[in-house]
Write a protein that binds this DNA or RNA. Structure first.
Length: 615
RNA sequence: GCCGACGUAGCUCAAUAGGCAGAGCAUCCGCCUUGUAAGCGGAUGGUUGUCGGUUCGAGUCCGACCGUCGGCUCCA
């Protein structure tokens, strides 16, 4: 995206230099003033349509802006059209944005009939929250307003110099959605209008094209088109059926992962799907996680719970006998299927489901092994993710929250081990202060997909809670019991979500090694079927996944269908090929490689498989 | 769970203002034997998500439920 250049930024309050710097930090996105200003213009248009309406907050966001309103009735798509039309008029009025600092009392008077603004003003005056209700760093409270035309908003800014800097053909209102006031589900539900705005029409169009592109990649759509998986109401929301083709991709991913885990010194284990209440009482899940667990089963008078996590089972394996320091580290890995209750409204394709399989592992180690183990997990994670075509990562280190278990020294040691692991690999990362779990610090890795979206996958977490609760120990060299460190990690996260991400990343065109069907034979006429069958046999013997399109169809139709199924290799067989014992290779990119011997093709395909490339 | 929208054939979507439920693709049956993204013809296919209500008459209006989608909250 081009940086925002057109139009100036209105003069803002004079601030001390370091304060300005703080604002500059927040305003790294050059499009923010444009987006924020457009949000104000929208709020004006909405209030004109609903004079009794109440306004809440309206910040810039990635790709656009939103504004929250409390209105007497739900908004309709027609309302949005009218609001948009009115916005175009306002924009053309070239009303200047005027900044003014006011006292708390003056602000209260100005927004006397705006209860949400009054609440914000109260927080501002108290000096601990900004106008979005976010905690501030303790700067002296400044209350400011921005006025354009006849609309006034409580606002820190900055804004454009005037509404004329917003191009009437470069914004669009996208949707209206419910949003709780201050994100609190106990507070009123407001109506949020989402919009997008760009420096010019071209940029807007490019953005809308991006949205369309994302829609074409949507794993729910591709899952149906490519017959990969389904989720059917008849068997329950959030429960996934892996169809043969999706199941194959999963099993290839799992096979690869298992093989790499073994090479990396992990042990492969299995555990049941249910466990007695004792287990979950001991682990603390019944105290802290129960709202995400399904109701217990009664088995001969004992309560059993469906597992929401695998850790207690791995711990019980560790505990099954006394452990020596010589046995550590122990690394137990399992594709463990867990079930968690998720509220119906949050379910989303494969990305958010109620039953899923984690590529879970737990590492038990001695204090002196922590550093190396973390190093290895981090390297291993990136190695696995790269194999699936992900090369861009956002890494986050989350540190000790206020409420936490475990001794501070252990927290420090663990956190430093995590930090040094990242830094020793020269990886950029961001620290999320206080964002660790109550039981330990963690590293999260988001992967960036082909169109730049970030997805949370990998998590590497220390756990100071469970070793304590389960009273884990090992016998040290001195014969005395010691408590091991425990690290919990998942690399794909969940197979379901990772599969969803993979589908969207590749837009359904999996690299050859993962493609459910790697090559399809396309005989031009019936007389080529025998040779096609012979070739298919040869390819199968070479380990390739092959199909023959035997239908009474035109070659063009067969090619089209193969294209739409995103099959890497289309092998055309006509008179010439039969005569020369060759196949004519077409790639799904549309590239025609021409006729070649079956052996040459096999070599080519096997290379692509080994290299994990697209063709 | 909450707010809003939506739910019509296997899929994608039509059906003026409440008045006989339709098209393309897929499937099946024929014909064509085909050279790098859809050959032609015919047939089959729907209790309009479910249940209830209003009406002479409901795909269309009302209510409840189920589900999906966009968000909020939460998260692998």
């Amino acid at each position: 995206m081009p940086p925002f250049r057109k139009g100036g930024i209105s003069s803002r309050r004079s601030l001390s230099d370091n304060c300005k710097e703080a604002f500059m930090m927040k305003e790294q996105n050059g499009l923010d003033p444009l987006r924020h200003s457009t949000a104000h213009v929208m709020a004006q248009a909405v209030l004109e349509a609903f004079p009794e309406g109440k306004i809440a907050i309206g910040p810039p966001i990635d790709d656009g802006f939103y504004y929250d309103f409390d209105l007497p009735r739900p908004l309709t798509p027609e309302d949005l059209e009218k609001i948009e039309a009115r916005m175009r008029e306002i924009v053309k009025g070239r009303h200047p944005f005027q900044y003014r600092e006011v006292s708390a009392d003056e602000a209260r008077a100005l927004f006397a009939d705006q209860p949400y603004k009054l609440e914000l003003i109260a927080d501002l005056a108290a000096g601990d929250k900004d106008e979005y209700g976010e905690q501030t760093s303790g700067e002296p409270p400044v209350i400011s307003i921005y006025t354009h035309d006849d609309f006034v908003d409580l606002c820190r800014g900055p804004h454009l110099s005037d509404t004329g800097k917003i191009r009437p053909n470069a914004f669009k209102l996208l949707s209206v959605a419910g949003a709780y006031w201050r994100g609190d589900e106990n507070r009123p539900m407001l109506q949020r209008i989402y919009g997008t705005v760009w420096p010019d029409k071209k940029a807007l169009k490019a953005y809308l094209r991006r949205l369309e592109e994302a829609e074409k990649r949507d794993h729910r759509r591709l899952g149906k088109e490519l017959d990969l998986f389904s989720i059917q109401p008849e068997l329950g929301s959030g429960l996934v059926l892996w169809h043969p083709k999706g199941g194959l991709v999963r099993s290839l991913a799992e096979d690869f992962s298992r093989q790499e885990h073994l090479r990396a010194g992990y042990d492969l284990v299995y555990s049941p799907h249910i466990g007695r209440a004792w287990l979950w009482e001991t682990s603390g899940h019944l105290d802290f996680y129960r709202e995400n667990m399904y109701a217990p089963l009664d088995i001969e008078g004992q309560e059993y719970f469906l597992k929401p996590m695998n850790c207690p089972f791995h711990i019980m394996m560790y505990k099954s006998r006394r452990r020596s320091y010589r046995e550590l580290p122990m690394r137990m890995a399992e594709f463990g299927t867990v079930y968690r209750y998720e509220r119906s409204g949050v379910l989303h394709g494969l990305m958010r489901v109620r039953g899923f399989t984690q590529d879970d592992a737990h590492i038990f180690c001695r204090p002196d092994q922590v550093e190396e183990e973390i190093q290895k997990v981090l390297d291993f994670s990136l190695h696995i993710l790269r194999a699936f075509g992900f090369h861009d990562f956002d890494i986050y280190l989350s540190t000790r929250p206020e409420k936490a278990v475990g001794e501070p020294e252990r927290w420090d040691q663990a956190t430093e081990a995590l930090r040094r692991a990242i830094e020793s690999r020269d990886l950029p990362y961001e620290v999320k202060e206080g964002d660790g779990a109550f039981y330990g610090p963690k590293i999260d890795i988001d992967i960036k997909d082909a169109i730049g979206r970030a997805w949370q996958c990998t998590t590497i977490q220390f756990d100071f809670n469970l070793p304590e609760r389960f009273d884990l120990s090992f016998v040290g060299p001195d014969g005395q019991p010691q408590q091991p460190y425990m690290v919990h990690r998942a690399l794909f996260g969940s197979m379901e979500r990772f599969f969803g991400i993979l589908i969207e990343h590749y837009a359904g065109a999996f690299p050859v090694w993962l493609a459910p069907v790697q090559a399809i034979l396309i005989p031009i006429a019936d007389r080529h079927l025998d040779f096609a069958a012979k070739v298919a046999e040869q390819l199968q013997e070479a380990g390739l996944r092959v199909e023959i399109d035997e239908r009474q169809e035109r070659m063009n139709a067969k090619i089209r269908d193969a294209q739409m199924q995103k099959i890497p290799y289309m092998l055309i067989i006509g008179d010439r090929e039969v005569e020369n014992e060759q196949v004519a290779v077409r790639l799904r990119s549309g590239k025609n490689l021409g006729a070649q011997s079956v052996d040459d093709f096999v070599a080519k395909a096997q290379e692509a498989i080994a290299e994990k490339t697209a063709a």
